[in-house]
């Protein structure tokens, strides 16, 4: 089984803070990390390989610095990795992204299973997985929390729904997006780190993946961001001050009245 996992480099959500004075994002000292959901996709790929055999390839689309997360993926047990990077990709919305990723995956050879995280924490759109499946003409299941079995090219998985879950059978080749509940990702291993140190991660350009320039980047993106602004504040508020007793007293009043109806 050849498994391809798509991963994205995102700013570490733990570090991103809103500057209370300027109301802008403060990214000072913010580390770039593997999108947390993608870690679970990667882990699931490695586990499937350990159970059913095969290989796991990770790919990422992004600036040259994104090689760092691919290298980390190698240290966590994946077999192969490559980057898709080109200035022509800048400004891609999810439609242009899925086109680019699909071209890269097609170019890399036949695939049995594509795994993605449910969404990326920097965009939270959850659109790339399903869009990529459409581009690859693969069936897909989103928000998978468990893979129960793979038999005769049919997979049985559990999909999280708003009101419970569905057990779904899906024919391979297929694409799954996964949620955090699916597994606990492993740390790198010492052998993996040694491999990553010498592993030369190839980078492919738009031309390398036979991409149609019109479908890339800003030009290939139907959505345009026209305005970026800080969220509004509520304005009026009253601060409760005083001794601990006074605060507790007032607060107990407000909570009781609001909760039980004054």
């Amino acid at each position: 089984m050849r498994i391809v996992v798509c991963i994205k480099q995102v700013p570490d959500a733990k570090d991103v803070r809103l500057d209370p004075v300027t109301n802008t994002l403060s990214r000072e000292g913010v580390k770039s990390v593997i999108n947390p959901y993608d870690r679970h996709a990667m882990e699931e790929g490695v586990r499937l390989k350990e159970q059913y055999g095969g290989t796991v390839t990770v790919i990422s689309m992004g600036p040259p610095q994104a090689k760092a997360i691919l290298s980390e993926a190698i240290s966590c047990g994946v077999d192969d990795a490559f980057l898709v990077s080109d200035r022509a990709f800048a400004g891609s919305d999810t439609l242009a992204t899925t086109y680019t990723l699909a071209q890269a995956i097609k170019k890399s050879g036949a695939v049995d299973l594509v795994l993605c995280g449910k969404q990326a924490t920097d965009g939270d759109t959850a659109q790339v997985g399903p869009g990529l499946a459409a581009r690859l003409d693969m069936p897909y299941v989103t928000c998978v929390k468990k893979i129960n079995a793979i038999k005769d090219q049919v997979m049985r998985v559990e999909r999280m729904m708003d009101d419970g879950y569905d057990e779904v059978e899906i024919e391979l080749p297929a694409l799954l997006t996964v949620v955090k509940e699916i597994n606990v990702p492993r740390f790198p291993s010492l052998r993996g780190l040694r491999k990553a140190k010498t592993f030369d991660i190839p980078s492919y350009s738009a031309a390398d993946i036979d991409a149609d320039p019109a479908q890339l980047g800003l030009g290939g993106s139907p959505t345009w961001v026209v305005k970026v602004f800080p969220p509004e504040c509520k304005g009026e508020r009253s601060m409760i001050e005083g001794s601990l007793e006074e605060i507790a007293d007032k607060l107990a009043g407000i909570l009781s009245d609001s909760a039980y109806g004054a």
Binding site: R186, F187, P188, S189, L190, R191, G192
Partner: peptide, 11 residues
């Protein structure tokens, strides 16, 4: 088990 997966028992 996490230490094992990360090769610390191989050390």
């Amino acid at each position: 088990e996490a230490l094992a997966k990360s090769d610390f028992f191989a050390l």
